[in-house]
């Protein structure tokens, strides 16, 4: 079963670049690299674009421990996880965030804590991270568009941060807001969504140990296109709940307005828990196309979608007694 278990405590940085590269070459040697449309098309000569994996950019992060919460499933390559993104502030194409986020300046950064808590105010990124041990969490990431990845994130439980500000009993939800910088985020020029991007969680969801306040991936700081410098990862929910480049966290009493829910309430619910039994009105959520492994497979990418993205054991109790068809 998929359990939240610790694999091995690691001293510092994880899987170094050479290992990534060797892994690719190994797979290439096995002939898994390029699969043609017809059987005769397999090219043993490895394509240059796929072999020359550049070293992962960004500063290495020191992590205290590593947890595999993806049941050992094969990881998405760093290149794929950073070049296939939905981050409309940089454009609506999947390649747009990688192409258009170069001008974004993620540091220095400040985060506003507001609303129903004993302590509120504006904090620097260093204030926020101070005192929290970073850990690597390998999670499945299921997009509402029916594709998925397996990504090693780096962060710490959001709940650990929230507790520091002593939320009041009246605080039932947590609302998040993304930064809005038109000069650095060209996608903001087009009102495809109601900017700035907003997301929200119920307090118990926010406090759940799987909910990760994320600052890095693949052993390094988050790249801009993946939500630098601070984002949310909620592995049992559709990917859009994982708000990026967070500038504000607010404790509120009522269910907050969230961007996709406001854009199409019948298509994107507030909860948006991964649920193969509740289809998107326009497409099925029963299966998903997994983007992982060698990074190039024509066949066999489609897999069954699991309730709560495979995290039912840990989170299903949060919704006991709720009609998940109504509260989708």
């Amino acid at each position: 079963m998929r359990r939240h278990h610790i694999i091995a405590p690691l001293p510092s940085s994880i899987t170094p670049d050479p290992v990534y590269r060797r892994r690719r070459e190994l797979l290439k040697l096995l002939g898994l690299g390029a699969v043609g449309l017809s059987a005769g098309c397999n090219s043993p000569a490895a394509p240059p674009a796929a072999t020359a994996t550049p070293p992962i950019p960004g500063k290495t992060m020191t992590i205290a421990r590593r947890v595999d919460d993806a049941g050992g499933e094969s990881q998405t390559t760093y290149a794929d996880a950073t070049h296939y993104n939905n981050y409309y502030e940089f454009g609506t194409g999947k390649a747009d965030p990688a192409a258009n986020s170069g001008r974004f300046v993620p540091r220095p950064w400040s985060l506003e804590i507001a609303g129903l808590a004993e302590k509120t105010g504006r904090y620097t990124l260093e204030d926020i991270l101070g005192g929290h041990a970073l850990e690597e969490r390998i999670y499945r990431m299921r997009c509402v568009e029916a594709w998925s990845m397996v990504i090693p994130w780096i962060g710490f439980p959001l709940g650990d941060l929230l507790k520091r500000f002593k939320p009041l009993a009246a605080a039932k939800y947590v609302a998040f807001t993304t930064v809005e910088r038109p000069a650095q985020m060209p996608g903001l020029a087009y009102p495809v969504l109601d900017w700035p991007y907003r997301e929200g969680l119920r307090m118990d969801e926010a406090m759940h140990p799987l909910t990760l306040l994320t600052v890095g991936m693949y052993g390094r700081e988050l790249p801009n296109q993946n939500g630098a410098p601070l984002r949310l990862v909620v592995p049992w929910k559709y990917g859009f709940k994982g708000i990026k480049a967070i500038v504000k966290i607010e404790f509120v009493e009522r269910q907050p307005r969230t961007t996709w829910n406001a854009a199409a309430p019948d298509e994107y619910g507030f909860y948006s828990n991964v649920n193969p039994a509740v289809d998107h009105p326009r497409w099925s959520q029963k299966t998903e196309r997994r983007i992982a492994g060698t990074g190039f497979n024509l066949f066999g990418n489609r897999i069954a979608t699991l309730p709560f993205n495979g995290y039912a054991e840990q989170v299903a109790h949060l919704y006991s007694g709720m009609d998940l068809r109504k509260n989708f």
Binding site: L37, N42, P47, A81, Y84
Partner: peptide
């Protein structure tokens, strides 16, 4: 399309590209 499919240059989600 065939060239990209046989050379692994369809990007992260090759099937969607096709």
């Amino acid at each position: 399309l065939v060239w990209d499919a046989t050379h692994g240059t369809l990007g992260p989600d090759p099937v969607a590209q096709l």
